[in-house]
Design a binder for these strands. Structure first.
Lengths: 222, 222
DNA sequence: GAACAACAGGAGCAGGTGCTCCGCTTGATG
DNA sequence: CATCAAGCGGAGCACCTGCTCCTGTTGTTC
């Protein structure tokens, strides 16, 4: 690496080379530690594993939450991109839906922090939630058009179901690895258009309070 | 109340009357607070709400965990007894299964601590887990005998499913109250004997189908 | 190589929480 | 009513954890 390269690298990010290295090390270590222990882990553990002092860590990320959000967003977006590509590449609509769930749960099976954020809020940030919602809606619409999805199943149903199964993956990972595939299969069969009985109506109170989540059509346009 | 009665009451429990009152107040307050806030709540809040000092609280329960365990076991056993009676009283086997899930989720919808313990370990204590397992197995066997349950569904499947749905109830309680009924319906339809395809084996293909997830360090390229 | 700004590091601070200690109070007893 | 052990209350201790401060160091520039 030439001196010019060093200079360029430093200028691009506005940071010194060692700072850049440390930032990468922190993100890498935080990714591992959060995945293993969840978001509640001690920040000192991350500093230790990245070979960096507390001061350095907090220079790069002003709060623990911001570090967690950064890491989660990286991991989540990487998954979303994969999931989107896979869904597009799968011709059969129902298989696209099945593949979405399987990839989600496979991916989350060893990442506590991601499951925590996904199962409780749908993702690390509002934009991630929207992307996820939009992806699910695309897959759902294809299934509806093909007539393979149970009548009345909403994007929100699929979203909440994926969160619920995510939790199940995590809590059964140690004692019953792989059992989540059975629960997934059961749920998927319940989602098939073979089931003709209508689903119970969601609480009217819920629809009234339905907040910031834009209608699926709006998300596709954007 | 005669003096003898006082003496008897004190002797029976080995405690003074005021101590007995305080113990009851602590359990009652702890039940509410744990239900509202979960097991992570500050012990001071329980002491405050029960109108008792910290010393008194810790005189009756040597640790917070023991208090939590006591309360959870009381609540859990009360639910188990109800659930058992209801199951026995329901003649139709499938309705007994449906009723079990509905009662469980209705009951847990407003109790954070119970869900936490149920979803992660199946209950506050090993004996509770066993009672719960046993109840599920009774209902399951009736459904199997009646030919209404999908072939291959195990007691463990139903147990894990109930834990998963419990989590869903809790995480959607605020934003989407009542939506869990839709997820429950979907799951129950997937459990019906209408579904003839076999479920995946418990320990099959769990590892070889796992997709490699990019390490955080690979994701920050650029 | 010299000068300097950016950076590293870890001891220490602040706030929160489980739990204890000990002087004061009260119910049971004769 | 007097006695006193059982019981009570809450200030305080110990530990954990997010975060900061400040001194010494290192990368970058000329």
């Amino acid at each position: 690496m030439t001196l010019a390269d060093h200079a360029t690298a430093a200028t691009r990010s506005g940071r010194r080379a060692d700072a850049e290295r440390n930032r990468a090390a922190i993100i890498a270590a935080a990714g591992e530690v959060f995945a293993e222990c969840g978001g509640g882990v001690d920040v000192r553990e991350i500093a230790r594993r990245s070979g960096v002092g507390m001061g350095t860590l907090y220079r790069h990320f002003p709060t623990k939450d911001e570090l967690l959000a950064t890491v989660l967003e990286l991991q989540f977006n990487a998954w979303l991109t994969d999931a989107h590509q896979q869904a597009v590449a799968t011709e059969d609509p129902w298989q696209a839906l099945v593949g979405f769930f399987e990839q989600l749960l496979d991916n989350q099976a060893d990442n506590r922090a991601v499951v925590e954020s996904y199962a409780t809020t749908g993702g690390p940030s509002e934009s991630c939630v929207q992307r996820c919602y939009s992806l699910i809606d695309q897959v759902r619409t294809r299934c509806v058009d093909a007539g393979v999805l149970r009548t009345g199943v909403t994007t929100e149903d699929l979203f909440l179901l994926s969160g619920s199964l995510s939790q199940a993956v995590l809590t059964t990972a140690d004692s019953h690895p792989g059992t989540w595939r059975r629960l997934l299969r059961i749920s998927l069969d319940g989602l098939s258009s073979r089931n003709t009985e209508p689903l119970p109506e969601p609480d009217s109170a819920a629809t009234d309070r339905a907040l910031p989540r834009p209608a699926p059509s709006e998300m596709i346009a954007g």
